[in-house]
Every structure is written in C-alpha cells, then in structure tokens.
Computed example of a mutant assay.
Amino acid sequence: MKFSSKEDVEAPIAQVFDMLADFGSYERQALRRGIEVHRTDTRAEPGVGVSWHALFDLRGKRREVDVVVSAFDRPDSIHFTSDSQGLQGLVTLELVALSPRRTRLAIEVDLKPKTLSARLLVQSLKLAKKNLTKRFKLRVADYAKGLEDRYRQQNG
C-alpha cells in the first residue's frame, strides 16, 4: 500500500536536505507525541546505517518498530526502511531543485505486510485509503511549511 505527496519548499535544496537529515528533530517530534525512541547506532554523522528502535501504542496495542536509514544521497534523497511485527515499510524523501531558492519535496510511504495480522491491518487501511491519503497530503503540506519556517528563522 502506497501513499505519496509532493510539495514545493521556498528554500535551497542543500538547506532542505540538511533539515531532512536532522534526525535529532525527528526524535524530538516522536518524543513529544509520546513515542519512546532509542537510537541503536553509534554514528556521529547522518548517513546510511543510522537506526532507531521505537515503542508506541496504536489502536490499544503496544507496537515496536525498527527504522534504519537505507540510502543517503546528498542532496537528492534519503530512504528509511522499517520493520514492525510483520509490516515492512519504505519511506522515501526525494528532492528536486526547481530554482536556486525553491525545492520540490516528494515523500512516498510504501507498506508491505509479511504476516496474516499485518495483511489484515493493511486491508483495513485500504478501506480508509481516501481519508488516509487526504490526511497524509495535509501532513506533508504542513511539514513542508514547517521546513520553510525553519529556513526563514535560520537565514532571516
């Protein structure tokens, strides 16, 4: 099951990539949402191999997910792979420079069930796909706006 969205960001591609590669900000966002996140690698710099283990409650059940940066191609893309109780995911962040001060951000999430219970979960998501796609696109738009705001704050 795939979700995808594209948004334009009023910032240069290098700065957008650096903000996307600020993995500490993802950790802080997750903690604010009540997700327990633990870094499981020892890398000092962002890149392939950076990884996390996260615990959270979803639909009344405790869930665990392991996330790894599987591709890191400055300044074009970052890929995250995840594994969570029979559900594998791939999140792709791709950047395209539209002009020196404008960047297109494309985000794609692909979920693949590997167990029967994961298949049932994905099937229930498919029933709500239209609503979930709408919410996903709104979140991506909000995230892109946040990137623009961060860029403006950092560069006046």
Rank of each mutant, 00 (worst) to 15 (best):
G24K: 12
P46Q: 09
W52P: 06
Y151W: 14
S51L: 07
R139G: 14
A141L: 11
D76K: 08
G24E: 15
D18H: 12
G24N: 15
Y26G: 05
Y151C: 05
E10I: 08
A21V: 00
R43D: 06
S51G: 12
K134A: 14
F136H: 02
G47D: 03
A128T: 04
D149Y: 03
K130P: 03
F72T: 15
V48A: 06
G49A: 07
D41F: 10
L121F: 13
R74Q: 12
L111P: 06
V68L: 06
R102M: 13
V16E: 01
K2D: 05
F80E: 04
K134F: 13
E36I: 14
A44P: 01
T40C: 10
H38N: 14
Y143I: 07
A106S: 09
A44W: 05
K6L: 01
M1L: 12
L121D: 01
G156Q: 14
L58M: 06
F3I: 09
E36F: 08
S4V: 00
R62F: 05
D73G: 04
V96P: 01
D22K: 09
V140I: 07
K112M: 11
K61E: 08
V96R: 13
F23N: 07
D41L: 09
A128G: 03
V9Y: 00
G86D: 04
R59H: 11
A14L: 09
N155K: 07
P75I: 08
L55H: 11
M19G: 11
F56A: 13
D73N: 14
A106P: 00
G86T: 05
V109P: 00
N131Y: 10
S99H: 05
E27T: 14
S82H: 14
G89Y: 15
A97N: 02
G34Y: 09
D41S: 12
R43F: 07
S70V: 06
R135Y: 03
M19V: 12
V37Y: 08
S117M: 09
L111C: 07
A11R: 02
L127A: 06
F72I: 12
R74H: 14
S70F: 00
A71M: 02
L127V: 08
G146T: 03
P113N: 07
Q88A: 09
R119Y: 05
E7Y: 01
A97W: 05
H53Q: 14
Y143D: 04
P75F: 11
Q153V: 13
G86V: 06
M19N: 09
V9L: 03
E64L: 11
V50G: 00
L20V: 03
S5N: 03
I35D: 10
P75W: 12
L120F: 15
G86H: 04
R28W: 02
S25M: 11
F23W: 12
T40R: 14
S5C: 02
K126G: 15
V16S: 01
S117C: 00
P113I: 04
S25N: 12
L111W: 08
V16H: 01
A54F: 04
M1P: 11
V140C: 00
A144P: 13
E108S: 04
Q123R: 14
F17C: 06
R119E: 02
Q29I: 13
Q15E: 10
T103E: 04
Q123W: 15
G156L: 11
A97C: 02
D110M: 00
L20H: 02
V16Y: 00
